[in-house]
């Protein structure tokens, strides 16, 4: 499914996104450092760096994980999604600072190589409470590293979107490791319950939002499969550019209507990868190509070309007297539907 990898480029929106992100990061760091030096004048610079970056990184990870399901409920939230990689890469760098400073601080300057010490100083591998929590953070950092390193579209193509996606699903493994990293580390040193409650709240939010989004998806699908609907008028054939699409929204559904080879096909607007807007994509090599990361689907059945297995819902289309009609009730994900001939 490769069509070159220069899809992601800078545009004013992205620059704004990054500026806002950098602003938020700075705001948090400033607030945390200021409050800490006021509350705890004894705190050392190393501890401050380790804690400021550690807490910031996990907060960012929560944001990263929450905006996905959020976009299912609040369509406007998709605007946060499309540049999520920058959020992820920044999060990696911040947690790398945390990890490196921790390794130097807790394992450096001793009678053992710091990395060896990370694995061999606390050997309570078979105890839950005494478990060497830092290696949980270490493995999470390794996962985050591979995700950040492969975040460019070059790797999406190189690894194939499927492998890429699998790799990036590892973020949930990293998240779980980090929950235990904090639970078995810092939270065991603290007497106050506040940190524990915040972590609980965070993980409940992440899990809850994912479950709710899953339920919503399933419900919507069932709803659309049951009814058999009427055809709706969309637009004139000549309003759609060749190899391009027009977006048609109807009762909360977004449908991309594609024109190519004197034919019209309709598929769901929502890319299976990260929800990219397929109506803004293009037909390349006979496939609908997502503008975000280049995933592809065949217009007549919404399926990714083999060996890929992604399927998006397809819709029946009719063309009469130069007008395009679509049945907004989907025939299901990957359902084969003959394209409507223009002539």
């Amino acid at each position: 499914m490769s069509v070159g990898y220069k899809f992601i480029d800078w545009n004013p929106q992205k620059k704004k996104y990054d500026a806002v992100m950098a602003g938020c990061i700075l705001l948090y760091l400033l607030a945390f450092i200021l409050l800490n030096t006021m509350m705890f004048p004894e705190i050392t610079a190393e501890t401050l760096i380790i804690r400021a970056t550690g807490t910031l990184a996990i907060l960012m990870l929560h944001v990263i994980l929450i905006i996905g399901p959020l976009a299912r409920f609040v369509p406007e939230a998709k605007i946060l999604l499309y540049n999520r990689r920058h959020l992820g890469v920044s999060m990696f760098f911040i947690s790398a600072i945390h990890g490196i400073f921790s390794i130097i601080q807790y394992h450096g300057g001793g009678n053992e190589n710091p990395i060896v010490s990370l694995f061999t100083s606390n050997m309570d591998y078979f105890s839950f409470v005494e478990f060497p929590f830092m290696i949980l953070g270490f493995f999470a950092l390794v996962i985050l590293f591979f995700m950040a390193a492969t975040s460019h579209d070059f790797w999406l193509n190189k690894l194939s979107p499927k492998t890429w996606k699998r790799l990036h699903m590892m973020v949930y493994v990293a998240y779980t490791l980090l929950i235990f990293h904090v639970l078995l580390g810092t939270l065991q040193n603290e007497k106050s319950l506040l940190g524990f409650l915040l972590l609980l709240l965070g993980s409940i939010t992440v899990c809850g939002m994912h479950i709710m989004a899953g339920i919503k998806n399933r419900k919507e699908e069932q709803l659309f499969f049951k009814k058999s609907g009427e055809f709706e008028l969309v637009c004139r054939v000549d309003e759609i550019e060749n190899n391009r699409a027009k977006l048609f929204t109807f009762k909360g559904k977004s449908i991309a209507i594609y024109k190519y080879d004197d034919k019209i096909s309709a598929v769901d607007n929502y890319c299976k990868h990260q929800g990219g807007p397929l109506s803004e994509g293009k037909i390349i090599d006979g496939c609908i190509t997502c503008p975000w990361h280049g995933w592809q689907y065949l217009p007549e059945n919404g399926q990714s070309p083999p060996p890929f297995q992604e399927k998006i819902p397809t819709y029946e289309v009719r063309v009469t007297k130069g007008l395009v009609y679509v049945n907004p009730i989907s025939k299901g994900e990957g359902a084969a539907i003959k394209a409507a001939q223009i002539n």
């Binding site: 938020c24 945390f32 409050l35 506040l194 940190g195």
Partner: peptide, 28 residues
């Protein structure tokens, strides 16, 4: 929507910076 979201985010950032500072309990 983004403006509203940002407003909430900024408040959340400040609140969390505060809570995470106080949550540290004592520092030697």
């Amino acid at each position: 929507w983004v403006k509203k979201f940002l407003g909430i985010l900024i408040i959340a950032i400040l609140l969390l910076a505060g809570l995470l500072t106080f949550g540290q309990g004592m520092i030697s």
